[in-house]
């Protein structure tokens, strides 16, 4: 990486190295692969337009992950508004078929709150410590610990209980 800004080659190398991994992480956080791809790509677009800032970051990958998460949150708010509008007009948009291989885990993850999903994904997939998660998310360490313990308990409950799996598999 350059001292002031990334060159196109450096950025493309960084993109090729990190985009799939980030997409997988965001997929666990969001539960939607297409959504994860979109927000990660959008975050990389923002990263290119702010290359100077990206170089100053200690962890550019964490910066892109945070930007992608914020984009996803913004999209959630917009989608919630559109869903309410659809409900008011009597119909709902058709949803794509989920991946059958991971539907149980994805459904279990969708049962968590967004912050619990994010915390669990950062801890178990990105291998971040509680302190690192607190820095990246802006939450206190106590809140991170609470999200982790509650998220883990909820996932264990839903993944080990066959009745819960059947209910969510439907």
């Amino acid at each position: 990486m350059g001292s002031t800004s990334l060159t196109a080659e450096e950025f493309e190398e960084f993109y090729a190295h990190a985009v799939r991994r980030l997409t997988g992480q965001l997929y666990v956080m969001l539960g939607d692969l297409q959504e994860a791809q979109d927000v990660v790509q959008e975050a990389f677009v923002k990263a290119w337009s702010r290359r100077g800032r990206l170089v100053k970051e200690a962890s550019p990958e964490a910066w892109i992950r945070t930007v992608a998460w914020r984009l996803a949150v913004r999209r959630w708010h917009g989608r919630r508004r559109s869903e309410l509008a659809w409900q008011r007009h009597g119909g709902a948009p058709p949803e794509g078929a989920p991946d059958p291989g991971s539907v149980v885990l994805v459904e279990a993850l969708k049962g968590l709150s967004p912050q619990q999903r994010r915390t669990v994904a950062l801890h178990y997939i990105c291998d971040l410590s509680v302190e690192q998660i607190a820095v990246e998310t802006g939450l206190s360490t106590g809140t991170v610990k609470t999200h982790l313990s509650r998220g883990r308990a909820a996932l264990a409950d839903r993944l080990q209980d066959p009745r819960t799996q059947e209910a969510h598999g439907d």
Binding site: T23, G24, A121, Y124
Partner: peptide, 16 residues
């Protein structure tokens, strides 16, 4: 399980 899910997402992704 979560890592497998993330890996499935990596494999299934088609980045631009």
């Amino acid at each position: 399980a979560l890592r497998e899910l993330a890996a499935a997402g990596e494999r299934g992704s088609a980045p631009a």
